[in-house]
């Protein structure tokens, strides 16, 4: 980043990429690419530093071999078209489907089996060590991590039917 213009932040001098210097585009093969100060990165990887609390700020931009190119302080400062590109990429890279309905919730041998609806799609998964793998975020969203390494979110627990909600609630504190 020798010739890259950067913004500095705070006394530690954290450096960010200027939104005006970079240009995100889709390469001919459908991957997100970046032109930064005249240099082309034909495919880049976007990573959230604060995936739950700041989904579109502090976005790390890396080359495909994980070398960091730089960091965007706030993706929303990008031109609308580019922001929507970045947003689409982030949302596809971070897969955390929203549970719309809990159909059943059962315990077997310390593992908790959920049967849920995600939109119109029915699926089931199991959670091990539930007190560790169900978390409530400061904004009230409930996050569930299943055994395979998938994440699910329930933005508003009040909307889950009361019978199953009562079964889940004891694990949420």
């Amino acid at each position: 980043m020798d010739d890259t213009k950067v913004t500095q932040s705070g006394f530690l001098g954290l450096e960010f990429i200027e939104p005006g210097d970079c240009c995100f585009y889709t390469n001919p093969h459908g991957f997100i690419a970046l032109r930064l100060n005249g240099k082309d990165y034909p495919r880049v990887k976007l990573t959230r530093a604060y995936p739950y609390t700041e989904p579109f700020a502090y976005i790390g931009i890396e080359e495909t071999d994980d070398k960091e190119i730089g960091m965007l302080k706030n993706a929303e400062e990008l031109p609308a078209e580019q922001f929507s590109l970045v947003r689409k990429e982030l949302e596809s890279r971070y897969f955390c489907p929203v549970i719309t309905e809990v159909l059943s919730f059962k315990e077997k041998m310390g593992h908790f089996y959920f049967e849920v609806k995600i939109g119109e799609h029915k699926t089931n998964f199991a959670v091990r060590d539930i007190s560790r793998n169900v978390r409530t975020l400061p904004d009230g969203t409930t996050l569930i991590f299943d055994m395979d390494g998938n994440r699910y979110s329930i933005p508003d627990l009040e909307k889950i039917d009361s019978k199953n909600r009562r079964k889940i609630e004891p694990f949420l504190y």
């Binding site: 690419a33 034909p42 890279r93 390494g149 994440r151």
Partner: peptide, 25 residues
């Protein structure tokens, strides 16, 4: 990726994965 992944085919002569073919997610 995070909570998901992709299966891609890497064509010959391209090392930066920018010309990969996405089979499925």
């Amino acid at each position: 990726d995070i909570g998901c992944g992709r299966l891609e085919l890497v064509p010959e002569g391209c090392d930066d994965f920018s010309q990969n073919l996405t089979v499925c997610r």
